[in-house]
Computed example of a mutant assay.
Amino acid sequence: MTPTPTATLESPTPEPTPTPDDAATPDVPMPTETVEVDTPYNGEVLIITAEQRGAALEVTAMVPGVSEDDGTCTLRVDGVDVASITSTAGNGVTYCGLMSADVASDSAATRFDVQYESSSTRARSADSSVESSQ
C-alpha cells in the first residue's frame, strides 16, 4: 500500500476584533486629575454699608451662612487690595467690620468689592460703586 499524501491547510491567524476601548486614537494622552490647592469659592459677601466722604471710602460687609472668627476681609478698590481686617463670628454670619481706604476725592464714583478668606471659605461680593457724598 502506498501512502496517500495528505495536505494540511494552515488557517491564517485571525485578526483581533477591535473593541470600543481599542477604537481610541493612538498617541492621545489620557486626561489626568488635577488637585486644586486653593480653597474653593463657596460663598458670597454682602455689602452692608458703603459710603465715600471726600477722600475716604468706608465699607462694612458680612458673609451669610458662615460663622467664623479669624478669617480675613479685604476691601479692594479698582481691583487693588487697600484694607484688610479680621472677621468676627455672629449668629449664622461672619461680620467684616469697618474697612476704610483713601480714594480719589475728585472721582465721580469709586468701584470696589470685598473678599473674604479663611481656612475653609472663600467668598466675594459683587462689584459695587459708591458716589462721593460731597
Rank of each mutant, 00 (worst) to 15 (best):
residue 16 P to V: 01
residue 52 Q to D: 08
residue 41 Y to C: 00
residue 21 D to I: 03
residue 12 P to L: 01
residue 10 E to D: 02
residue 48 I to E: 15
residue 34 T to K: 11
residue 33 E to Y: 05
residue 5 P to A: 13
residue 29 P to A: 14
residue 70 D to P: 00
residue 82 V to P: 00
residue 49 T to N: 15
residue 62 M to N: 04
residue 54 G to F: 01
residue 25 T to L: 10
residue 57 L to T: 05
residue 44 E to V: 14
residue 65 G to D: 06
residue 55 A to F: 05
residue 63 V to K: 13
residue 77 V to E: 11
residue 32 T to N: 04
residue 24 A to E: 09
residue 29 P to F: 02
residue 35 V to I: 15
residue 71 G to S: 05
residue 63 V to I: 15
residue 41 Y to V: 13
residue 55 A to D: 15
residue 24 A to F: 11
residue 23 A to T: 07
residue 5 P to F: 11
residue 68 E to A: 08
residue 69 D to W: 08
residue 22 D to T: 14
residue 18 P to G: 06
residue 56 A to R: 14
residue 64 P to Y: 02
residue 39 T to N: 06
residue 24 A to L: 12
residue 75 L to H: 04
residue 75 L to A: 09
residue 61 A to I: 09
residue 46 L to P: 00
residue 43 G to N: 13
residue 22 D to I: 02
residue 50 A to C: 06
residue 61 A to Q: 00
residue 26 P to I: 03
residue 81 D to Y: 08
residue 82 V to I: 07
residue 24 A to C: 10
residue 34 T to G: 10
residue 59 V to E: 00
residue 15 E to C: 08
residue 73 C to R: 00
residue 37 V to R: 13
residue 63 V to T: 13
residue 32 T to M: 12
residue 61 A to L: 00
residue 22 D to E: 12
residue 5 P to W: 05
residue 13 T to D: 06
residue 41 Y to H: 12
